[in-house]
Simulated scan of single mutants.
Amino acid sequence: MNYYQSLGYLVLGSRLKRLSELFLSEVNRTYRSEGIVFETTWFPIFYLLSENNSLSIQELCEEIEVSHPAASQLVTNLKGKGLVMTTTSSEDARKQLVKLTPEGKKLLKKLLPMWESIRETMEEVAGGKPASDAILNELTTLEAAFKSADIAARVKAKINKTNKSVTNV
């Protein structure tokens, strides 16, 4: 057991971040090795647009659970690369609709088989489909638990309880 593993939940965020960085680095390396210019940060929006003709920025925010400024920045970045375009909604002039450009659709054709290969590889690395599914299910459970729990308040309550116990001794 290494140092990080021995610290358990005290370094959960650090371990998840390290794992995420390793995964994203490997995916970026794969894109580069195939001569594809694509950033892993673009994936959520690009994938959503691959499944939908167009989406509003607000819809993108809700689907990928980011702020409006964060989604707007990603869309602006993709627009700058010529991969997406925005149009004004015919139903609501305040609403900007985002969709893939012809260049974005061309890139998508290259990305789809890569994404499938990435998914298959990750399932294998995680120990096969059942093990992989179990890991993802546990991650979903953990995400839901963290979202529903006010961790800072719970930690503070435990600190206060400990401080009261020490004071009463």
Rank of each mutant, 00 (worst) to 15 (best):
S20A: 07
E21P: 00
W42V: 06
K106D: 13
S50M: 07
S148Q: 15
N52Y: 14
N28M: 05
L107T: 07
V37W: 13
G104P: 04
S20H: 13
F46L: 03
E138R: 12
F46N: 01
D92T: 06
L60W: 00
E143G: 02
S14P: 00
T86A: 02
L60G: 03
A134V: 03
E124G: 04
N77I: 04
T140F: 13
M85F: 04
T141N: 11
E63G: 02
T87G: 04
A144R: 13
S117N: 10
K110C: 02
F38Y: 03
L97S: 05
W115N: 10
F43N: 05
L24V: 00
L108R: 15
D133P: 02
L83G: 03
I64P: 00
K106W: 06
S14H: 15
P102A: 15
R32F: 06
T86Q: 13
E124Q: 13
K129Y: 15
F43W: 08
R15P: 01
C61I: 01
G127P: 03
E26S: 09
E116V: 10
L111P: 01
F38W: 02
P130L: 07
E39R: 05
T87W: 00
P130S: 05
S20W: 13
L49T: 07
P113L: 07
S20F: 10
A134G: 01
I118H: 03
I45V: 11
T40W: 10
L142K: 08
A149E: 13
L107Q: 10
V84P: 02
L136P: 01
L16C: 07
I118K: 00
L24M: 08
R29S: 03
E21Y: 09
H68Y: 14
S33Y: 02
E65M: 02
E51N: 06
I36H: 09
E123V: 11
S50E: 08
P130N: 04
